[in-house]
C-alpha cells in the first residue's frame, strides 16, 4: 500500500477539527466518514477499539483517538501530524476570539452579555454533573465515593489530582476484593 503523506493526515484532522463542536465523542462519526469510508485507511473495528481505549486512558478523548489513529497510519510522525491537525483549528479560533473579546469586553452590552453567559455556564456545569451522575453513580460503592469526596472537597482545598489518584486506588482495592469473592 502507498505510504500516506503526513500532510494528508494533518489536512484531514484539521478538517475534522473544524467540525468538532461539543463533546469529544463527536469525533467518532467524523473519523468513520473521512478515514474509514472515504479513504479506507483502516477498518471500523480498529476505530471502535481506539475509541474504547481512548476512554480508559488519561487525556482528552478526541485528542487520544487522533493520536492512536495517526500512529496507526504513519507511526510516530503520523501521530504528531494528527494531533497538531486536530488542535490547530481550535488554537487559531481561540486566539482570534480572545483578541476580539479583549478589545470589546469593556463595552456595556458585551459586559452585560457575559454577565448572563456566566449563569449559562453554571447551568451547563449542572447539566454535565447530572449526565455523569446518571451514568456512574448507581451502587452503594459509587454513592459512598461521590458523597465522601464531595464532602471533603467542600471543606478542604484538596488538589483534584490527589482526589483522582486516591479514588483510583480505592476503586482498584474494591475491585480486587470483589473479584476474589466472585471466584
Amino acid at each position: 500500500m502507498k505510504k500516506i503523506s503526513l500532510f494528508e493526515i494533518f489536512k484531514i484532522f484539521f478538517i475534522i477539527g473544524i467540525q468538532l463542536l461539543g463533546g469529544g465523542y463527536v469525533i467518532v462519526p467524523l473519523l468513520k466518514k473521512y478515514i474509514v469510508e472515504e479513504r479506507n485507511w483502516m477498518s471500523e473495528e480498529e476505530l471502535i477499539d481506539y475509541y474504547a481505549m481512548s476512554q480508559c486512558i488519561p487525556g482528552i478523548i478526541a485528542g487520544n483517538i487522533s493520536i492512536c489513529t495517526g500512529y496507526r497510519l504513519r507511526g510516530f510522525m503520523g501521530a504528531v501530524a494528527a494531533i497538531t491537525g486536530i488542535i490547530a483549528p481550535s488554537f487559531i479560533a481561540i486566539i482570534v476570539l480572545a483578541n476580539i473579546l479583549s478589545s470589546v469586553v469593556n463595552f456595556k452590552p458585551v459586559k452585560d452579555a457575559f454577565f448572563g453567559i456566566r449563569i449559562s455556564v453554571i447551568i451547563l456545569v449542572l447539566v454535565t454533573i447530572k449526565d455523569i451522575w446518571q451514568k456512574s453513580v448507581n451502587s452503594i460503592f459509587t454513592y459512598i465515593m461521590f458523597f465522601l469526596i464531595l464532602a471533603v472537597l467542600l471543606f478542604l482545598p484538596v488538589s483534584p489530582a490527589i482526589v483522582i489518584v486516591f479514588s483510583a486506588l480505592i476503586s482498584l482495592i474494591f475491585y480486587k476484593i470483589k473479584g476474589v469473592k466472585n471466584d
Binding site: 480508559c56 453554571i122 456545569v125 449542572l126 454535565t128 454533573i129 455523569i132 451522575w133 451514568k135 456512574s136 453513580v137 460503592f141 459509587t142 454513592y143 465515593m145 461521590f146 458523597f147 465522601l148 469526596i149 464531595l150 472537597l153 467542600l154 483534584p160 482526589v163 483522582i164 486516591f166 479514588s167 483510583a168 480505592i170 476503586s171 482498584l172 474494591f174 475491585y175 480486587k176 473479584g179
Partner: peptide, 21 residues
Amino acid sequence: FIAGIFLGLRPAACALLASIG
C-alpha cells in the same frame, strides 16, 4: 481492571465537578 478503576473514578470526577457547581 481498568474498568474496575473507572467504577470509582467517574463518581469522583462527578464529585469534583459538583463541588465546582
